[in-house]
Simulated scan of single mutants.
Amino acid sequence: MSLRFSVLASGSTGNAIYVETDNQRVLIDAGLSGKKMEALFEKNDLDPSSLDALFITHEHSDHIKGAGIFARRYQLPIYANAKTWNAMDAMLGKLSPDQKFHFEVEDTKVFGDMDVQSFGVSHDAAEPMFFTFAHGGRKLSVITDTGYVSERMKGIVGEADAYVFESNHDMNMLRMGRYPWSVKRRILSDLGHVSNEDAAHAMADILDTNDKPTSIYLAHLSKDNNMKDLARMTVKQTLEERGYQEGGKSLKLYDTDPDRPTALTTV
C-alpha cells in the first residue's frame, strides 16, 4: 500500500500536483493551459484520463487556468469550497452540474482508499485552502499561498512523511526588485506569501513535533524574487540553526520547477 505524488508544476506561472494510490488518482489545481498540463503528465508517463478528481485550492489564475478545459476534456469532478466556486465559476467555462462538488474548509473526505483533509490558509482569495492526503499510514501535506503559517496550520500538516511547502521569495530580492510597492506590500502581508526564512522557521516548528524521516519540496518560488539555490541555501541554513541537518535518512530537501515535474515519488 503506497501513496505517491509528483509536483507537476510549481511557481508564479502555474501550479499542479498529482497524487495517487493504487486505486485513486487526483490532481490539486490545474494552473497551466490544457496543452501544458498534458505535456507535464506525459513527462512522467501519467495518464490524465485516469484521474478521479480535481481539487481547487483557490481561484487565482495560476491555480485554475486549465481547470475548466481539463475537467471537460476528461470528465473530471471538481471539488472546491462554496466561496471559491462563487469566485471562479465563470472563469472555468461551461461545466455540467454533475462535475461541481463542494469540499468545505476544515473538512475530511474519503476518496476510495485516500483520506483528504482540507484546511484554511491566509491569502488574498475568496476562501483559500490546502490539503493533506493520508493512505496506509503515510501522509503528504501540501501548503502554499499563505502569508504566514499559524499554529493551527502547523498542527494540521504535521506528522507528515512529505511536505510540499511554500518558499516564495527572498526578502532582499523582493525589496530591491522591480515590483511596485503596492505589490511588494501585498506579498509581504499576512494575505500574501511566506519568505524563504519564514518558511524554514515554520518547517522547523513542524519538525519539532515530527520524529519520522521527512522530505520537503520547496514550492511556489517567485520567478522574479527568488532562485532555487537561494531558497534551498536559506532553508537549509535556517533548519541547521534549529538543529536539523539535511541529508541521510532524516531530512531531505527537494526543488520544484514551473515547467518540469518532479519524479513520481512514494511517500
Rank of each mutant, 00 (worst) to 15 (best):
M91V: 08
K154T: 06
Y74A: 09
A126I: 00
I143E: 06
A219T: 13
R175M: 10
Y79S: 05
N23S: 15
L27D: 13
S141V: 01
L46N: 05
N168P: 00
T238H: 05
A134V: 04
S189A: 08
P180Y: 11
T265G: 06
N210P: 01
G192I: 04
N23D: 15
R185Q: 13
S10M: 10
N44T: 07
V116K: 08
I156F: 03
H201A: 10
S250E: 11
G68M: 07
R232K: 13
S195F: 03
E42D: 05
G147V: 01
P48Y: 09
G136P: 03
K252A: 14
K223C: 06
G248S: 10
R152V: 04
Y163W: 08
F101Y: 15
L239A: 07
D47T: 05
S2I: 01
E240R: 12
Q24A: 14
S195D: 06
D211S: 15
R138P: 00
E151K: 11
F131Y: 15
N15L: 06
E166I: 00
Y18C: 01
Y18D: 05
L8A: 10
S122N: 13
L253E: 11
T57Q: 09
L92R: 11
D98N: 15
H123Q: 08
E166R: 03
D98F: 11
D107A: 12
